[in-house]
Design a protein around this nucleic acid. Structure first.
Lengths: 225, 225
DNA sequence: CCAAAAGTGTTCCGTCTACACCCATGG
DNA sequence: CCATGGGTGTAGACGGAACACTTTTGG
């Protein structure tokens, strides 16, 4: 039985995490300088190898947890990358994962600990290996799904104003939206609930805080913006 | 430098091909009975291991060529599958690829040679390992992209009638479409050209044959149905 | 002559888009 | 009192959905 496998060769399998966050009206991605060879000092995504006793999904969650201290984060696979020489050291197949996090859940000291920075998605430097392509693909997927899945709420606090929500959409889509039309569409989505709470930080007048009702969504999972 | 890799372990990486075809008004997928252990005799997709000196994309094209004798086939990655015990014999990470072929380009003797059959997509048996999930995911992707990319022409001969085209859409979407509305939308797509040729096989009256102008599409790659 | 598939327009309704002004408040 | 961001409605254009009959011809 093992003879079937024996004639073939094994390779390293890794995961790379594309972590998106939203801050100061911009969509950001977590990048750091590689602290190991090969590629030491180059800008790069944060990744890790898949262990013997974990699935690739589990490996991605483990790497993300190490990176952010966060569990139960929205994450999805982007694609597998398998060019022969994509890693200059060894043959490594890497599976890219895209995560969406709320920047204010993130402990800042972890940034320093891992030597990471939030980089604006339209100011991404040349990265190690094929990581630029990974990010590009993740962004394309994000744009494709943002209107039919409730993804944007992963980038915001539990309570958010409609202006914040609109800014997230604008940052992801890369275009400005009409305020009245946007709010009209939001009103039609009954999983987005207005609360009695008022946010006084963002404006003098104060803005109503909204919340995404995850429970209602689970029972009736439709979402069309 | 190799110390960085040494502490980690390698795994087998394979590709599995989901080959879709269209025949007799139905969307079909190529399936066979496994001729090796583990899983001998179970229904399965056709796959192969990724070699030392080929990318995973190249491996997928190689496997597809071996299977069909065809090159320059439309193919795209579906996803990587990496559960620890997905292969009962060894740890194998598999990358699923979806291919679209024109059944009439396919030499029938290859079916027998590889012990394969065209199986209707809504009559797929229980398959080896996670192959059912792979097909489901491939179908979802296909449905998502069929209206914004010119994929359907890969399932048809160069020359086709509008009825054939509509049947392909109906098979993929799994619902019936209105003939007049469908044809109206097709007329609005200028990369789909009517020829002077008439197909006399499908009906007594004869039906105009159309062709997809790939060159025009390459110059101006938009497609909205 | 009839069965079988090809081909063809119009109306209606709902959705998307464009667009400008008043409100509340902190400083 | 004014600068700043919050909040609201309408009209016109456009696109999608529903719908039925005539044409051609091989057998």
């Amino acid at each position: 039985m093992t003879a079937f496998y024996a004639e073939h060769n094994k390779v390293f399998v890794a995961v790379d995490c594309i972590v998106f966050g939203f801050d100061k009206k911009k969509l950001k991605v977590l990048l750091g300088k590689r602290q190991m060879d090969p590629g030491r000092g180059e800008w790069s995504l944060y990744g890790g190898f898949v262990g013997e006793n974990e699935s690739i999904d589990e490996a991605a969650y483990r790497v993300l947890y190490k990176l952010t201290g966060l569990k139960h984060i929205y994450m999805r696979q982007v694609a597998a990358f398998g060019a022969v020489d994509r890693d200059p050291g060894e043959r490594v197949v890497s599976v890219a994962y895209c995560a969406l996090i709320n920047v204010s859940d993130y402990q800042e000291d972890l940034l320093k600990k891992h030597g990471l920075e939030w980089v604006d998605v339209d100011a991404i430097p040349k990265l190690f290996s094929d990581h630029n392509i990974m990010i590009k693909k993740a962004l394309t997927l994000l744009r494709m799904h943002i209107n039919s899945e409730p993804l944007c709420f992963n980038l915001l606090p539990d309570l958010f104003t409609l202006t914040q929500l609109q800014l997230v959409y604008e940052a992801i889509l890369g275009e400005e939206l009409d305020k009245r039309n946007f709010r009209k569409r939001i009103k039609a989505i009954d999983t987005i609930e207005k609360t009695e709470l008022i946010d006084k930080y963002s404006s003098k007048r104060g803005a109503a805080l909204y919340r995404f009702n995850r429970r209602m969504y689970q029972e009736y999972p439709t979402f069309k913006l």
